[in-house]
Design a protein around this nucleic acid. Structure first.
Lengths: 204, 204
DNA sequence: CCTACCGATCGGTAGG
DNA sequence: CCTACCGATCGGTAGG
């Protein structure tokens, strides 16, 4: 039951926000009453923390894959693919993260510093190597680039519903085009043309 | 008084969300009582619509500048600068827009279609011209590129507080670096090197 | 896991 | 612009 509650809460918090979701609403989604829910989670605040922690656990599960991609001689595109894959597997994740960024920036800052910084540092290092061997633009700001890449993946998936209309295409096709263009942009923004191992992800 | 209420509501909605802000809170911010507030705006929903409309009015005021930049032979970078300028002038705008994207995607879709589509179409046209004369990468998806550019500007400013820690710099310096790298990335993601008029915004 | 209930606060109204 | 007040709903507790 605990897992069912977590899942329902994750979905509702992502969709309506923490303040826009009542405990009764979550309880009724898993077919129990509010006091029963409060037996599993002592307070709404505790439930919120648990929802975040469960998403973080899922993230940690794909971390090894991410780090391996960043450390190996593979393209950075594979790191991005892993990241996109994580958020596309469950759209609630992107929405939830964005809401936290808006509602509790200080708190998210701590989580980012603790869980995201390590692998971003590795990616930064890869970028600097690329700059040293001339395959990556010398004026790129590695850390700032990573911030924008994350922003693009997380924010793009969370707000695709609204901004997608600009593509004038059916939702599925729009998402496919957006993802492809995202990978292309991020590749072009980093790699110098003609340099070694710079095949763009979409094939160009 | 109406304007004072609007300003306070804009700030609080941006900071805490619509559901996370009470009418009493807004009223006390402008030193009146809740019933007095409800004389100026008949309901909380009406206040929300008015807040959005006032932001849209400000946006319309810079639209001519934006369209002129898009239509002229100037670089697309100037359009981006105008866009970044609009959101940097008041950070609440980015936060508010992102919240609407999360809370009421269908409604924002309508606003985007009505107010954003026209000038995006112009930018798209400029991109296609660039592709025709070879200055812009042939495989770029003009519409998808615009979506990501908007996403980057709006989302980046709204979530800079959380993601900024990755830069390990003081807030001001971090924001400056982020903006510069954003313009560099968007430029590199579009223009082919060596082509006419492709000076990058930051100077490279 | 439930029913019954708590005080607090919500958006909104009456009436001046 | 205010005081006084409304019903509804909120998060949470008691007690079984």
């Amino acid at each position: 039951m605990r897992d069912r509650i977590l899942k329902a809460a994750t979905h509702l918090f992502a969709k309506q926000g923490f303040d826009g979701t009542s405990l009764s609403e979550i309880a009724s989604a898993v077919e129990i009453k509010k006091p029963s829910l409060l037996y599993h989670f002592r307070s709404k605040a505790e439930l919120r923390v648990a929802v975040l922690a469960s998403m973080l656990d899922h993230f940690k599960a794909v971390l090894p894959e991410l780090l391996a991609a960043a450390a190996s001689q593979e393209q950075l595109a594979s790191v991005l693919r892993a990241l996109v894959g994580f958020f596309r597997a469950d759209r609630d994740r992107a929405r939830l993260l964005l809401r936290e960024a808006l509602d509790r920036p200080e708190e998210l800052r701590g989580l980012v510093h603790e869980h995201v910084t390590p692998w971003v540092r590795m990616v930064e290092e890869r970028i600097r190597q690329g700059q040293a061997d001339g395959s990556i633009h010398a004026h790129a700001d590695p850390a700032a680039y990573c911030v924008h890449a994350i922003q693009l993946v997380v924010g793009g998936l969370a707000s695709a519903d609204s901004l997608g209309v600009l593509l004038d295409d059916d939702p599925e096709a729009a998402e496919a085009r957006l993802t492809e263009e995202l990978l292309r942009m991020l590749h072009r923004g980093l790699y110098r043309p003609g340099a070694e191992g710079e095949r763009p992800p979409g094939g160009e």
